[in-house]
Amino acid sequence: MAAEAAAGSAEAFRALLGRHYDLMYRVAFRTLGQQADAEDLVQEICTALPKKLASFKANAKFESWLCRVVINAGRDLMRKRGAHTRAANGWGDVEIMQRAAASEKKENLSWLSRAMQRLSPDLRETVALVLGEEMTHAQAGKALGLSEGSVSWRMSEVKKELRLMAQAEEMLE
């Protein structure tokens, strides 16, 4: 279908967007941590996709390729914001989400955003794919342009980071 769309079939392209919008949105949300940002990012990607499709190789898996596009776009966005916003690093504005959330969910949300904020953007992207999309390390590696070993290493870093966070929070209690 991606090939058809690349060849110029509008229907194929429409179907492609419809089918993959949710995936793009999920990955964008998990790396950026804001619904509004994620929606905007995906819309921009949808706009850029027709040109980008030309660079898609038919032997690759479309979903992995798309995840990579989303992740790169997310990085660009964060870099663009750079020093200008407090939430530059993603997952920064937990208040906005919390306001919308029911009170029993607040604790979970705050834990999640603390955890995600603690992770570097690299690790967050890996988590979005491995835990979020339930990809294997090999698949995530393909999507991130890394070796499987590097993904494993990153996941062990995530684990280490979560453990450190748990230790730090225990000490505070």
């Binding site: 429409r14 967007l17 919008y21 819309q43 949808c46 706009t47 027709p50």
Partner: peptide, 8 residues
Amino acid sequence: ALEAGMAA
């Protein structure tokens, strides 16, 4: 998003 994509 879909509309923007289609237009593009």
